[in-house]
Computed example of a mutant assay.
Amino acid sequence: MKYHFRKAKLSEITPIWEILQQAIQRRKEDGSTQWQDGYPNPNVVQKDIEKGEGFVLLDGETIIGYSAVLIKDEPAYDKIEGNWLTNGDFIVVHRVAISEKYLGKGFAKIILKRIEDFAVSNNIYSIKADTNFDNIAMMKIFEGSGYTYCGEVYFRGSSRKAYEKVLIEQE
């Protein structure tokens, strides 16, 4: 497979931010309120990368997708209205965005699959994520990738749909 998923570099903030800006504009055109409040922004991306949590999907040398991948680090997930499927270690997926030129070809699902591989390689068997109630595209991607709707979490004052995928059933 020519697509490579790896940690992002600080030198890649510009192309990553371009992809995120495209996604922000798409959310706006779809009538979504998600990402319409100045978040994410280049500082968020820089912090992701500095913490080793920013990841890129490459087609050859071209960055075509971005995601933040956090290990066991999402305080908002402690207060779910609903129930997670598991209570152990988990990976958190945030800020999934695909380049305009690569839309509709399944690359968001490829990113999720690569994150699953990353999780298993770190002996973590749960992935948790959330999205805005009006981000239909991402909800379909989660549901089509085997994620289960678990309830609602709150970020920056707004409610979001929370999902989890269990990779290997624990004994």
Rank of each mutant, 00 (worst) to 15 (best):
Y66N: 03
F118Y: 15
D59E: 03
V92L: 14
A119P: 03
N135T: 05
I49W: 08
I98K: 15
N83A: 14
G82F: 02
D78M: 13
D117W: 04
D73W: 14
D117G: 11
F55M: 02
E81H: 11
T33D: 15
K113W: 03
I115E: 06
I110P: 00
N123P: 00
H94K: 04
N87V: 05
P75Q: 13
G52R: 09
Y102I: 10
E74V: 04
I110C: 01
A129R: 01
F90N: 10
D130W: 01
V96L: 04
G144S: 13
L112D: 02
E116Y: 09
E81F: 13
N87M: 06
K105I: 04
W35E: 07
A137S: 12
D48H: 10
A76Q: 14
D59P: 04
D73A: 13
K51G: 07
S126K: 04
K113M: 12
I127H: 10
D37F: 11
Y147T: 02
Q36K: 08
N122C: 06
L112W: 01
D73P: 07
R160K: 09
F142P: 10
I63F: 09
A68S: 15
E50S: 13
G88M: 10
D59R: 01
D78Q: 15
A129W: 02
I71F: 15
K161E: 04
G60V: 00
E81T: 15
C150I: 07
G65H: 02
L58R: 05
D37G: 12
E74S: 10
N87G: 11
Y149S: 12
T33W: 05
E100D: 15
F107E: 14
A137M: 05
D117E: 15
R114F: 10
A68K: 09
F142D: 06
G31P: 05
V45W: 04
A129Y: 00
I111G: 00
G54N: 12
K79L: 10
G31H: 04
L58C: 12
G151Y: 09
V45F: 06
F55P: 01
V120M: 03
Y39S: 01
P75C: 15
D78I: 11
I127E: 06
G146T: 05
D89R: 15
T86Q: 14
S159D: 14
G82T: 07
N43A: 13
P75H: 11
E50K: 12
S158T: 14
G52M: 06
I141C: 09
D30C: 11
I127S: 07
R156F: 13
S67R: 00
L58W: 02
F155K: 05
S158I: 12
Y163D: 08
Y66M: 01
V153Q: 07
Q46L: 13
T33I: 14
L70M: 12
T148Y: 02
F155T: 07
E164M: 01
R95L: 06
G144A: 08
S159G: 15
P42A: 07
Y125S: 00
I127M: 06
R114L: 09
N41L: 01
I64W: 08
Y77F: 08
F133A: 00
P40K: 03
S67I: 01
S32V: 06
L70C: 14
S121N: 14
N135K: 01
E74K: 06
K113G: 11
N132Y: 12
K161M: 10
G38Q: 08
D130G: 06
I141N: 05
M139I: 11
G144H: 02
I115V: 12
V96F: 07
I124C: 00
D30I: 03
R156D: 15
F55D: 05
